[in-house]
Design a protein around this nucleic acid. Structure first.
Length: 427
RNA sequence: GGAGAGAUGGCUGAGUGGUCGAAAGCGCUCCCCUGCUAAGGGAGUAUACGUUAAUAGCGUAUCGAGGGUUCGAAUCCCUCUCUCUCCGCCA
């Protein structure tokens, strides 16, 4: 949610910024609706004051034993006009709120212009793609040869876009999760949290998935309106909902491992092979709650924390700054980490790190207080550190050997019982 | 799943229809006093929105949430949520 004060102060500037996303903000309509809201609010408050004053007079009269009848007669019709006015105010307020809830965040000044991901700007690369002297396989073939990846089994149980992992491959994914959690808690100063995987709509509204993106979510079918989390961002960021933190508590750094559930509506036909795009996947998520003037630096740091995982795993990757048309609804700025996948001969997204400035904080009413100052909104950030399923894909592809085995990178061996390689079962 | 109790400001806790945004205590801030990390005295101490140059005044709203009754609701009625206790069940 954008700051209504900013919208009022300079609607044209907001419109210009949002136009970079390809979002059309009707500044004139905003000014008109907001002006209507204002005049109705003034009217309602004046009527309420009149009513309050009268009620007070009646109370005083009655306590003195005076006749209150004339006073009562005087306010006879007040209720009706007040009801009518508040009804109109409520309607306008709801119209305004619904509209504001669907407006994306203001982009940071340094977000590159461009309509879509083709305009994303590469910031840096790390590592060099390995040269293979044999016919390389993609992660599906590598995983199936290892006996660790079963899409047919998953289809029998749950249909398309699910996977069953077995044996050493299942363990490898678990090892990746532990490894990432240990890095972030031990080296990067994050506190591990365990959170619900089912959340109520207000939590999704707080982080921006609702009301606009309901189609991307799985909703449970029960008396309670609950959704499967599409990312740990939702429950973890909402930890500070309705809170007034002390500035001494900031920054808060949380890391959580959760499964993520995405309906992938609208992505039929994309990445249908393999683990890249699933309805369910494991992810380690980094979340930071910071003071506003630190969020820009915090995004760089958080991105670095995610990069550190790829570096420790010795996986080549690049960092791209998302173009204005590709930045998500709630974010002001986003870096994607793209890992090299030999099977696709391409860099593919494995982490997305964003600064949401005060956009989510305003929706959640997450604030902090500096000394005796008035409470101010915090800034929120998050990033994958990393998506475990896609990291598994990257390992299988980058570390495959001619004989079908997969080498475990040094940094990960302690997490798989010291194993240095996963081999296919003997026929 | 069954039965009961409760939800008030940073905390404890009064308040069952009328100057209640809310007593008192604690905590916190400032000032005074005090020859020494004590005691005492005084003042202040919620949030949002509107108005405004103003984080000064003034107005409106908020006593778990939503609705209702009333000229007037923290107080009465209805619905919901959450917390606690006991029983049952379960990991």
């Amino acid at each position: 949610m954008l700051d209504p004060k900013v919208l009022r102060a300079d609607p044209a500037a907001v419109a210009a910024n949002l136009a970079r996303r390809g979002f059309e903000f009707d500044a004139a309509r905003f000014s008109a609706v907001d002006a209507e809201r204002k005049s109705l609010q003034v009217e309602v408050e004046a009527l309420r004051k009149q009513r309050n004053d009268s009620a007070k007079q009646i109370g005083i009269a009655k306590s003195r034993g005076d006749d209150a009848a004339p006073l009562l007669a005087a306010v006879k019709d007040l209720g009706e006009s007040l009801d009518a006015a508040s009804e109109r105010l409520d309607a306008v307020q709801i119209e305004l709120d619904d509209w504001l809830a669907g407006i994306p965040n203001i982009l940071a000044a340094d977000v590159p212009d461009g309509a879509d991901e083709a305009a994303n700007v590469e910031i840096r690369r790390w590592g060099a793609p390995r040269q293979f002297d044999f016919a390389l396989a993609d992660h599906v073939d590598v995983g199936e040869r290892l006996g660790g990846l079963h899409f047919d089994a998953a289809a029998k149980i749950s249909g398309a876009r699910f996977a069953v992992l077995r044996g050493a491959v299942a363990r490898l994914q678990r090892a990746l999760v532990q490894f990432m959690l240990d890095m972030h808690t031990g080296e990067h100063g994050y506190e591990e949290v365990y959170v619900p995987f089912l959340v109520e709509p207000h939590a999704l509204h707080g982080t921006g998935q609702l009301p606009k993106f309901a189609a991307d979510l799985f909703r449970t079918d029960g008396d309670r309106e609950l959704y499967l989390i599409p990312t740990a961002e939702v429950p973890v960021t909402n930890l500070v909902r309705d809170a007034i933190l002390s500035s001494e508590d900031l920054p808060l750094r949380f890391v959580a491992h959760t499964p993520c559930f995405r309906s992938e509506a609208g992505s039929y036909g994309r990445d249908t092979r393999g683990l890249i795009r699933q309805h369910q996947f494991e992810k380690v998520e980094l979340v930071q709650i910071v003071a506003p003037d630190h969020s820009s630096d915090a995004l760089e740091a958080l991105t670095g924390h995610a990069e550190a995982v790829l570096q420790r795993l010795e996986l080549p990757y690049r960092v791209v700054a998302l173009a204005s048309g590709d930045v998500g609804f709630s974010a002001a700025k986003t870096y994607d980490l793209e890992v090299w996948l030999p099977g696709q001969a391409a860099y593919r997204e494995i982490s997305s790190c964003s600064n949401f400035t005060d956009f989510q904080a305003r929706r959640m009413q997450a604030r902090y207080r500096e000394g005796g100052d008035k409470p101010a909104l915090v800034h929120t950030l998050n990033g994958s550190g990393l998506a475990a399923g896609r990291t598994l894909v990257a390992l299988l592809e980058n570390y495959q050997q001619a004989d079908g085995s997969v080498v475990i990178p040094d940094g990960l061996r302690d997490y798989v019982g010291g194993a240095s390689v996963i081999r296919p079962p003997v026929e």
